[in-house]
Design a protein around this nucleic acid. Structure first.
Lengths: 203, 203
DNA sequence: AATCAATCTTGACACTGTCTAATTTAACCT
DNA sequence: AGGTTAAATTAGACAGTGTCAAGATTGATT
């Protein structure tokens, strides 16, 4: 029961968003290495070179997918940090669990978002950076709050940037080791996250 | 001034190790995406399909390179943990700095060693696992010692496996964010590592 | 000296990303 | 309305990739 006429049209009408959407599906289904422009075009029902009028590169397409991912991640972090009816410690714990579970639920998307493919050697699109950097910055903002509330174990002067780099490194590292298949026990994610929270909190 | 005769010979003699060696060079020079079997073969001076008599796959070749990397990393960790004339805290700090700097000095090798390419979907060779798992285990062993010495901040029961997963996650995450070009300030590695050490130690 | 297995080579196939030039359509401006 | 222009899409082509199959060459073994 499609509500679109589907008349055979030369101009697709909304190819750009369709490409992003279908490419996202392919990524979720079978991983990054199965996403090829040609298969994507075939699946959308368009010629191989059509995507090039909407994306400069395959890289630009990938940046577009990652861009949406960062917006999603940013929104999720926001929800964790501002969860109602929870103590600050609980919200800190929630952030860590949610972050790692985001990666666990969307392994290939996460891989793409943080992989060197789109970040190394000036590959990142301006739009991608515009979505990613605020997301990074938000981690610093959260960390600064946690430091003000004397939540985090440390000695010496507070430094929100450094602390957030360490915290972010930790969740990122745990996520990566999980989804790259190096931790064999994916079942114990929550326990690992709990232990991480415990190691960072002041006692 | 070569000391090998270099007579044109049909049989190379030691092609397997030569392939591993040259492939490692190519990896270091221009990154993983520039390592192709055909370019490798050309550089070694051999036909495109010759490598297939020594490695089942391109994947098997990559596993071979990573294998050597893990042995190197394992040896380095060992040196850090047993550094003479240093306090336990200093050795803990040394481990973190050395680990991250290993990744920083060999970004493409590290990327390969921990990338999903060789770990996902049963891609890992038995020889690779035989080199990597002891390396992983050693991190648990070190962590157990640090816990016994009451070095690490935490509450509740000690769990060496969980703690090492968190610690390893942290160094891995910091390393990854660095070499993937997501942290822009590669210059501040040591400061980040120092801050990580500070956050994990009991005060 | 003959045999055999290991080693290496050429040829071929199906993929990939991307460039160029031609074709079709929609939009816009008298 | 009609004609021009720009956007969107197309087929064709090229260089590159991993890898399979079948044949050629060699060193080692009997």
């Amino acid at each position: 029961m499609k509500n679109t006429p589907e008349k055979s049209k030369y101009h697709h009408g909304d190819l750009r968003t369709t490409l992003l959407h279908v490419a996202g599906e392919m990524l979720k289904e079978s991983g990054i290495e199965e996403v090829s422009l040609r298969k994507l075009a075939a699946r959308v029902g368009v010629s191989r070179t059509a995507p090039y009028h909407h994306f400069k590169d395959k890289n630009a397409l990938l940046c577009g997918i990652a861009e949406a991912g960062f917006k999603q991640l940013h929104a999720m972090n926001n929800r964790s940090f501002n969860a109602e009816g929870r103590s600050t410690k609980e919200k800190f714990s929630l952030f860590i669990h949610e972050y790692v579970n985001f990666a666990k639920s969307n392994p290939d998307l996460y891989e793409l978002m943080f992989g060197r493919t789109i970040w190394k050697q000036e590959n990142s699109t301006q739009e991608l950076r515009a979505a990613a950097y605020p997301c990074f910055q938000y981690q610093v903002t959260m960390t600064r709050e946690w430091q003000k509330l004397k939540l985090l174990n440390h000695s010496g002067e507070d430094n929100a940037l450094r602390a957030s780099q360490v915290l972010w490194g930790t969740v990122h590292g745990i996520a990566k080791l999980l989804i790259d298949g190096i931790y064999t026990d994916v079942a114990h994610v929550e326990e690992i996250c709990d232990y991480a929270v415990d190691m960072f909190l002041v006692h």
